[in-house]
Amino acid sequence: MAAGGDHGSPDSYRSPLASRYASPEMCFVFSDRYKFRTWRQLWLWLAEAEQTLGLPITDEQIQEMKSNLENIDFKMAAEEEKRLRHDVMAHVHTFGHCCPKAAGIIHLGATSCYVGDNTDLIILRNALDLLLPKLARVISRLADFAKERASLPTLGFTHFQPAQLTTVGKRCCLWIQDLCMDLQNLKRVRDDLRFRGVKGTTGTQASFLQLFEGDDHKVEQLDKMVTEKAGFKRAFIITGQTYTRKVDIEVLSVLASLGASVHKICTDIRLLANLKEMEEPFEKQQIGSSAMPYKRNPMRSERCCSLARHLMTLVMDPLQTASVQWFERTLDDSANRRICLAEAFLTADTILNTLQNISEGLVVYPKVIERRIRQELPFMATENIIMAMVKAGGSRQDCHEKIRVLSQQAASVVKQEGGDNDLIERIQVDAYFSPIHSQLDHLLDPSSFTGRASQQVQRFLEEEVYPLLKPYESVMKVKAELCL
């Protein structure tokens, strides 16, 4: 049975990233139509530049190519590739079939990587351009969430054990800070992308030097003109047959890092959902379990974690691919890159769409948070109580021993009897502590235990987050809708 299948058929496997999760716009960027249309555009740009620099290419040939950029006979191309065992030459023939007058000058002087690699770089750039505003929107939604809850005390956790208090907004800023680093890295790697350009079979530009009869300047002009037509500021000066596969490492490393950030955020949300302090959106008709109707599973956060793990592992592909590119190139890269580049971007696209949807509907339960604080705060307040007693004339050592005994009794009630923490009640009825009984409410005010959390939130948002989001103001209103 021949390899390949009808990918629109229910009898043929289709990647869930495309069929179930990723956005239509990201799927289109990695589609065959987008790819092969870009090949034709690159052939047109090459012909236009070659004509401008004096090669015998007519206006009629150029116009014929322009008129057929979208006229792609995919069936013919597939048949040609089956016959020739070469995808680029299959599309040269297919393009030439609908451009008979231009057929002889299509791909003039070029090698397969002229269309293959340059198209990949265009796709990487455009895919990054799709991700950047999506990530900015996630940051914006979380920034709104953090600002609104900047002063809401909550129990902090280290080692997932109760620690000092923080605020809900401050905790959210930990998430935002990681995503801001990801946004900066995505922008950097996007701006650092260079075009492969017009380089020939081993990167020496020998074929173009021959076409222009040894004119170095025209060869350099050709490279520059096509690079500018493709919208790049610069091209690699040095290439082998391909652009260095280190570029793929750079791009997928940034995406993998984004995956790590999203995994951490969504894990926190899942843990908070278990504590009943916070939940992701839950639709009115949504079913959490087929057997347990009360369940409210954090399905979206779980999906993000599941896909983020996949995204983090994909960076190993370009690392290994770059390491086995012998001399000017081997074909070890080809099949692998067809999979890992598309999957990385479709996965990143999915987790950003999902995280935006989550961040637009996060639900906080202040009463649950308050109750958990009441359970733990008495123990945390013991040092403040000791200091207040010393100020009232008591002995630190005597007070410490009193607190120690009462704390152990209260802990026994919590752990052995399943009761509430009654340390404060014990202190309130103990005559030894009568000098500070009137101060206990103040000493137990949760806001006095959150330090500068709310001020940190305000400063972080104003100095770091809002300036970073400013270039994306025009796209901030787009909502994230999930079908599944």
Rank of each mutant, 00 (worst) to 15 (best):
F195S: 09
T167R: 04
S23N: 06
Q285I: 13
T94H: 00
A127S: 06
E81Q: 09
I287S: 01
I122Y: 06
R188P: 00
R40C: 02
F460E: 13
V92G: 13
F449Y: 10
A480L: 08
V226A: 03
L211S: 07
K264A: 11
K82L: 08
F157R: 07
K229A: 12
W45S: 10
L44G: 12
R194E: 01
R141F: 08
L179M: 14
S257I: 08
G419C: 04
L55H: 13
P56D: 11
R303V: 01
D223S: 04
R338Q: 09
P366A: 03
K224D: 12
A273M: 02
E343Y: 15
P281V: 03
T382P: 04
A150R: 10
S395W: 01
G418A: 11
T382K: 06
D248I: 09
G393L: 03
K66F: 07
S334W: 03
M26V: 08
G5R: 13
L46T: 11
P298N: 15
V168L: 12
E220R: 04
D129F: 13
M292A: 15
S253E: 10
Q177S: 12
H442L: 10
R196P: 10
I427C: 14
Y243I: 14
F74H: 00
V457Y: 00
H217R: 02
M387V: 13
A230W: 07
D349Y: 09
T313V: 09
C180T: 06
F30K: 10
I427A: 15
S9G: 08
H310N: 11
D120H: 09
D117W: 07
H107L: 03
R234S: 03
H93A: 08
F460V: 13
R296K: 15
P471S: 09
L174C: 03
K147Y: 05
T382R: 08
N68C: 08
V198R: 05
N71S: 05
S290K: 09
L314G: 04
R396A: 05
E70D: 15
E279Y: 12
H107R: 03
A260V: 02
R40P: 13
A344S: 13
N274E: 04
R37N: 13
R188Y: 00
V88Y: 00
R171C: 07
R14V: 08
K391F: 00
T450W: 15
K101R: 04
A230E: 05
F449R: 06
S359F: 04
F449S: 05
C340Y: 15
D317K: 03
S448A: 07
R190G: 06
L165V: 04
S448I: 10
N336F: 06
A127Y: 14
H97A: 01
R125D: 04
W45Q: 08
N118L: 01
R37G: 12
R85W: 12
F145K: 11
E473R: 10
K479A: 14
T330A: 12
K284D: 05
P10E: 14
H442G: 02
K199Q: 10
R33D: 12
M312K: 02
Y472R: 01
V363E: 10
S112H: 10
D11I: 13
V189F: 00
A78R: 09
V198D: 01
C27Q: 11
Q286C: 14
V368F: 14
E228W: 15
T111Y: 08
N185P: 03
I62V: 07
I339G: 08
C27P: 02
R149H: 01
I339K: 08
E302G: 13
V138H: 12
E280G: 07
I385H: 03
L53W: 06
W326F: 12
F460N: 05
R190A: 08
Q286P: 04
Q325I: 09
L255K: 06
E401I: 14
E360V: 00
I122L: 03
M312F: 00
G116K: 05
D87T: 01
N353K: 11
T450N: 10
L42C: 00
T313M: 11
T242V: 00
S261G: 13
Y34L: 04
A78N: 08
L174E: 08
L124A: 05
P10R: 11
P471F: 01
R452M: 04
R371S: 01
